[in-house]
Design a protein around this nucleic acid. Structure first.
Lengths: 225, 225
DNA sequence: CAAAAAAATGGGAGTTATCTCAATATTTGT
DNA sequence: ACAAATATTGAGATAACTCCCATTTTTTTG
């Protein structure tokens, strides 16, 4: 008996090549989350995916290739879904608060994805930057709307990102409860000199966190060899 | 010709064992800073220290042992010196601002130490925690002095630490200039709802950054073999 | 200065990794 | 059902690493 990860479930009805590739990606998530990118080995990923080690190289050039692939998939998956969930929202601060809270809620409900995101921060700076750019949009909208007086530059965006990531890490370690998203949102808004009352309202208002799509299916039987 | 690191210079007049140990620690700093803790190998450290690989094991049990040693030395060295430099200061916010700015200035003037600190954040959480505890003292003093109204808890301290570390990382990468310390200080104080005017004053006031003691001496001749 | 103590050496056994490739198994198209 | 196309396999060449330890070199001491 073995569990199928999200990628494998998604590829269920594609051809064998795609299915094996997906198994490898799920295994990679598991290993990266557990051991970190540097400590992870191709051998271990193949073992976890229950394929021969040579099979790995049919699908990916090396560890970096699969890491980049996995990280990109996770990042765009989450970003797209958050974007879609916010489609109606106009207020920049509401958007920022929603995105932050939804991001932390989702990444901590899928701890393996969450850990990959945290670990990717140092190993795959591109992913980090992608999330920054994404967040930038709402903050700059806040400037145009006159709600944010601070100037949004790279340093500020970097600081905010590191706060959000720190909150996610605390949540994943178990050091913070489900309120982590709201707390960090309020702190960021305070930092930007939003009136405390408004910051508190944005950060703690009831929102319906969407159940982000993650096509996990329970189990799949499989005979050993 | 080879350069002697800070530890080697400090151990200059001790016995051979201590000197070799110090060489290994300097080499370890160099390798950890360049490659990260996980990617670093005992072989590479020994090679960098110009000693046989077996010599390493005379002085340290394994890579983790030297890493813990180096990190502890760096952390206490910096913390002690900042403490000493602040001996006269009474105002909690001034103390916080000074410590933060001095920390970033020093760690970025010694980039190898700076990188070790950054990388140690994930590999040696103890070091991270040590710095948090240290900072806590000033923040709680700020509460008692009535300057900080927010409640200081683990989540808040963790957030502040991650902001300071992010600023240091940006400085080390070259993405931020010498103003990084002041900027992050002001952001933290804003986050704590200190009146913006006061926050700005604390963060940007002229201070004489002490030249923290780092007994680096330029070079030492040495014949090959 | 010679003997004893301390430190350093480097070869080697054992482990784990990466990546390739000829052989084998599976899937697909007709 | 059969051949061609695709995909998987696992042994093996190569390399790097960890840690040990018998030997050699250096330092200390009487």
């Amino acid at each position: 008996m073995m569990t199928s990860g999200p990628f494998a479930v998604e590829a269920r009805h594609q051809n064998k090549s795609a299915r094996t590739r997906a198994r490898l990606m799920d295994a990679a998530v598991e290993v990266f989350a557990r051991d970190g990118f540097e400590a992870a080995s191709v051998n271990e990923i193949a073992r976890m995916a229950e394929v021969a080690n040579g099979t790995f190289y049919v699908h990916f050039k090396d560890k970096d290739a699969i890491a980049a692939n996995v990280a990109a998939r996770i990042a765009t998956d989450i970003a797209d879904q958050i974007d879609r969930a916010m489609e109606g929202m106009d207020d920049a601060l509401d958007r920022f608060g929603f995105a932050t809270r939804q991001f932390i809620a989702f990444a901590s409900s899928q701890p393996q994805w969450g850990w990959v995101i945290i670990r990717a921060a140092s190993f795959l700076p591109e992913m980090h930057r992608q999330m920054e750019t994404h967040m930038c949009a709402d903050l700059e909208m806040g400037c145009r709307q006159g709600q944010i007086s601070a100037e949004i530059d790279a340093f500020l965006v970097d600081t905010i990102t590191s706060m959000v990531f720190a909150a996610l890490a605390a949540r994943l370690r178990g050091d913070a409860g489900p309120e982590a998203g709201s707390r960090v949102t309020e702190l960021v808004l305070n930092m930007l000199n939003i009136p405390p009352q408004r910051a508190h309202e944005v950060a703690w208002q009831d929102i319906t966190l969407k159940d982000l799509h993650l096509p996990t299916q329970p189990k799949t039987e499989r005979l050993a060899h």
